[in-house]
């Protein structure tokens, strides 16, 4: 983008939301979105992530006492049409009565942009999203992925102060989702625009976010970089929600974590830990002599390039790990496991 203006910084203070029927969608929330960053709001449905986005957009008013600041200026009383934010909706919200080009140019038309400048900007956006050929199409003639591109182009055409995306990829199939995710990532980096991205898909969140806000029941569970959140989950909920996390119960004794299925060497173990957690990739299969834990296979899913195993070691839930595809596993086989001590966590 040619704009030399510094991207927008957004500050939410004490933003809560109670709906007319009494449902509390959001507990009081404080959040600082830095200039130019991509912030992902992540969580299961009903966690308050979309409400937060809608408060930033101006589509919802926070309960009394909450404020929204754009670069320090209080915009709380302004409705969305006065905030100059670009928004991309899950259902795209493209206007069926307008062509692709008219959709993209609509925001400029409202701003009384002279027609030559309007056409130039629309063409620029068509080019940026590589949809020049679709300019005169009707919306109902577009595929899902094309609609998503038009929606992005339309939101960006007006040079918004920030881009707000509400589950923009959810309506697409898996392959297209991956392709568009990469495109959106590239676009956001190139434009350097402040972006808030809502999703329930943790892979999408990890790939796109400079920082991720994990939300649960209307509250923030953790804020951090994708790496922070993956490697140092602050709560059990975060640990479970981001990727797969294995958990075994036991106690610490003599530099190791002792469980009913064996003991895992863990020099830096916190003395009071009663539970050890580790990711599937930190588990490897070992011979009886070298194994830390011993268990039996309860399920094996052949995935082509690898095999996903569920191993019972006496806990509530089986451990999940992945093994090379070459070996054949069957239900009931005994198996030995080694855990990489660097991957061990406790809460």
């Amino acid at each position: 983008m040619t704009d030399s203006m510094k991207p927008l910084a957004i500050t939410l203070t004490g933003c809560a939301k109670t709906f007319a029927d009494g449902t509390k969608a959001l507990e009081p929330l404080d959040l600082v979105i830095k200039s130019g960053e991509t912030l992902v709001l992540l969580g299961p449905s009903g966690c308050g992530k979309t409400t937060t986005l809608r408060i930033i957009a101006g589509l919802e008013q926070p309960d009394a006492g909450g404020t929204v600041l754009f670069d320090g200026e209080d915009v709380t009383p302004l409705s969305i049409e006065k905030r100059n934010v670009g928004m991309v909706f899950q259902s795209y919200a493209l206007f069926p009565n307008m062509s692709v080009a008219e959709n993209i140019g609509y925001g400029l038309r409202l701003r009384k942009t002279p027609s030559a400048a309007l056409r130039a900007r629309v063409n620029e956006m068509l080019g940026m999203m590589r949809i020049e050929k679709l300019a005169d199409r009707r919306i109902d003639q577009l595929s899902g992925g094309q609609r998503q591109r038009v929606a992005l182009a339309r939101a960006l055409a007006v040079r918004p102060r920030a881009l707000l995306l509400d589950e923009p990829l959810t309506a697409l199939d898996a392959k297209l989702r991956d392709a568009l995710r990469i495109e959106i990532d590239e676009l956001l980096r190139r434009l350097g625009i402040t972006a808030v991205y809502v999703t329930h898909d943790q892979a999408e969140a990890m790939a796109l976010g400079d920082r991720i806000v994990v939300m649960e029941h209307g509250k923030v569970a953790q804020i951090g970089t994708p790496r922070d959140i993956y490697q140092r989950p602050a709560t059990l909920f975060v640990a479970d929600f981001i990727g797969t996390m294995n958990r075994v119960a036991g106690h610490v004794a003599g530099g190791a974590f002792v469980t009913s299925a064996g003991s895992i060497p863990w020099p830096e173990a916190p003395a009071r830990a009663t539970e050890a957690m580790f990711r599937p990739q930190d588990v490897s299969i070992a011979d009886d002599g070298a194994a830390h834990l011993k268990g039996t296979i309860t399920a094996a899913f052949f995935l082509g390039d690898r095999t996903r195993l569920a191993v019972d070691v006496g806990g509530d839930k089986p451990l999940i790990l992945e093994a090379a595809a070459r070996r054949d596993f069957s239900h009931g086989d005994p198996i030995g496991l080694r855990i990489d001590p660097h991957g061990l966590l406790s809460l």
């Binding site: 957009a57 589509l59 409705s79 969305i80 049409e81 006065k82 100059n84 934010v85 670009g86 928004m87 909706f89 795209y92 919200a93 493209l94 206007f95 609509y106 925001g107 409202l110 701003r111 339309r154 939101a155 007006v158 707000l164």
Partner: peptide
């Protein structure tokens, strides 16, 4: 909402 986000 889409139209409003564009300033309508």
């Amino acid at each position: 909402e889409g139209a409003a986000s564009l300033g309508a």
